[in-house]
Design a protein around this nucleic acid. Structure first.
Lengths: 174, 174
DNA sequence: GCGTAAGTTCAAATATTAATGAAGATACAT
DNA sequence: ATGTATCTTCATTAATATTTGAACTTACGC
């Protein structure tokens, strides 16, 4: 097994008639792709975010597709993901249906939202499961050391569940 | 795209002549597999760790392979990973070459080591890269808002790099 | 209202990652 | 010293995840 999280560095070519990414834009894309990799977010999503992040003004669907040389489907799904995570916002020019995308002001808040969506469900599901594990070991046959291991795990999980909303407050709902 | 981090819940069958996993053992395995998934660690590795974690006494290679119904290669690589991360230790019974594996006492320390190995390299590589990005944008053409975004990113990265060793001290070397 | 710009969906194709197993290395008990 | 138990390696196969693109939907500008 390789150490996890290494992804290859395959690159797309921008479509003709769109400016290919400049070196510093590629570099930023690499950065975001790497970071996204740690969180299990696909490269296409990271590339889109990166492009919006470094762009002088909001970009529309076609510009994103064109400059990244990416399929329509990927752009659509990538934008959906970023939108759902609250990481990007759109504006419209009047007289056009086109949406123009740009990053939300706070990257920090975006990351928090991502983390929430990833780890909170895991923590929540774990709590009763760990209780069932504890119920499952016969305490007469199980050495105290193992019992201790397991209940420590449960305590941690509970603590994490308590702490989580404090550290990463849920976004205010509409 | 599915929300990241969902892995399927496929299960192995234990090899004949080895006790299959009991329900509470399966439950703990699910927990560890889930958590490992968040960090991009493969399920086979999580299963091995989980089995050692709940076992009454240290297990040898064959017991691990047998109870999990896993290939030799996977057991070998999984143990290597866990060993390298400092998450498991071995003892030997005298008169046998066999190693008996058990989890290291501190799961916390183990997780810290895992995190280190995952995010520290990314942070380190990012630092000069982000500087190059900043050098790459022509500050005359780039709106102040974008410049601000980019330098904030760099500041964060630097801060994270400073903080990291404080939060997660490196293991004392031999 | 209607034509079409603008975007979405999803089944199929590709790319990536993990698991397997047979052949090879190692070192210890004898 | 040697035979073999014990483990490792790695090319192959299997499983998953991501991307593509063509068919479909939607809703706006006219």
């Amino acid at each position: 097994m390789k150490p996890p999280f290494e992804k290859n560095a395959g690159r797309r070519a921008s479509r003709p008639s769109f400016e290919p990414l400049a070196p510093h834009e590629l570099e930023l894309a690499d950065f975001f792709v790497r970071m996204a990799g740690i969180l299990g977010v696909p490269r296409s999503v990271a590339e889109i975010y990166s492009l919006l992040y470094i762009s002088l003004k909001p970009l529309d669907f076609d510009q994103i597709q064109g400059r990244l040389g990416m399929s329509k489907g990927s752009v659509s799904q990538g934008l959906k993901f970023l939108r759902d995570q609250g990481m990007i916002l759109s504006v419209k020019e009047k007289g056009s249906r086109r949406e123009l995308w740009h990053p939300t002001p706070s990257l920090a808040a975006s990351l928090v939202s991502l983390l929430r969506s990833q780890v909170l469900p895991a923590l929540e599901q774990a709590s009763p499961a760990l209780q069932r594990v504890l119920d499952g070991v016969q305490s007469d046959k199980t050495p105290p050391e193992v019992l201790e291991r397991l209940s420590r795990l449960k305590r941690w999980n509970n603590r994490a569940l308590e702490l989580f909303p404090l550290l990463l407050p849920p976004p205010p709902e509409a």
